Simulated scan of single mutants.
Amino acid sequence: MRDRKKILLTGINGQVGFELERSLQGLGEVVAFDRSRLNLTNLDLVRDAVRTTKPDLIVNPAAYTAVDNAEIDVAAATRLNAETPAVFAEEAKRIGAALIHYSTDYVFSGEKGEPYVEDDPVNPQNVYGKSKLAGEQAIAASGCSHLIFRTSWVYGTRGKNFMLTMLRLGASRPELAVVADQIGAPTWSSTIATMTADVIAQAIGAGSAGWNDWWHVHSGLYHMTASGSTSWHGFAQAIFRLSNLESKPIVKPIPASAYPTPACRPTNSRLSNAKLGERFGLYAPDWEDALKLCMRAL
């Protein structure tokens, strides 16, 4: 195997992909794809991209993330979140490459009273969660070397996310009602990208002779979120507290039952990162510390 690793990266216009393209520089030759270069809904094109690129590692943050729309557009969610990852896994197995993929807290029901660990029973309550779980299962079944990182409540300085929505609405409304009985860890996309790069650096550090063994030993499922937890209401309060809005809105707490959505969301989205720390020595920052850095980046 060549010394300089080739990394195929998808979804570079998305929140996590955008940050990954920057974090992965220096770790190898990054071959980055956005939607215009690779239509991930076309499985033949996905296969061709892998076979043409011949990567040592595939990093796939691309996903269908419109949770409520997925309840209607089941086929699209299934294609991007289950079928496309399955093809990446099959091709990775065929050429001896490794695969890094991202999943979600929504694979769980949210009924557990403590943070979820990786081997807790899964029970997704919406189409999005079911499609992401199918992707996880397809990757594991392929037999390829892989890391699946489950994360939660992702936000960043670009795209569509809770933080940017709150700032937009807060600039024009004196009061906002935000759900206060769903708990999770808001996770900055840059945190995910940085920790992923750290993991890849550890694999590269094993050297060419130890690359395949490293992936064999470490393959599996890991949780990767910010430390600590809050509610959507608490998240919104922190966003406005750290913002530079001249007039900040009042944030009113409401139950999820008062804000019905097409997709059911978990009450408890907390994930334990203990396994990530034990295997890789990585510990994510507290969610509010990361939010401060993200708000500065705005």
Rank of each mutant, 00 (worst) to 15 (best):
V117D: 12
S131D: 12
A76W: 11
E83F: 07
H146G: 07
M166A: 15
R158H: 09
K132M: 15
A140N: 04
V87M: 05
S109T: 13
Y116S: 02
R94N: 04
G135E: 03
A86W: 01
F149I: 06
A82M: 04
A89G: 00
V154Q: 02
A89W: 00
P121N: 01
A76Y: 09
G96E: 07
S131L: 09
I148E: 06
E111Q: 10
I95Y: 08
G135I: 05
P85F: 08
S131R: 11
S172V: 14
K160C: 14
A77Y: 06
V122S: 02
S103V: 00
E91L: 08
S172N: 11
P124I: 01
I139W: 03
R79W: 12
Y106V: 04
P85G: 02
L133A: 02
A177L: 09
G170K: 05
L80W: 10
G143Q: 02
Y128S: 07
E118H: 01
L133Q: 03
G113E: 13
I100R: 00
V178T: 14
V127D: 07
K93L: 10
Y116G: 01
R79Q: 15
G135H: 06
S152Q: 14
Y106L: 04
E114V: 13
A177I: 14
R168K: 14
E175R: 11
S172F: 15
N123R: 02
Y102N: 13
V179N: 10
E175Q: 15
W153S: 01
L147N: 08
F88Y: 08
L80E: 11
K112A: 12
K112W: 10
E83N: 07
H146E: 08
I148A: 06
V107C: 01
I100C: 05
N81G: 14
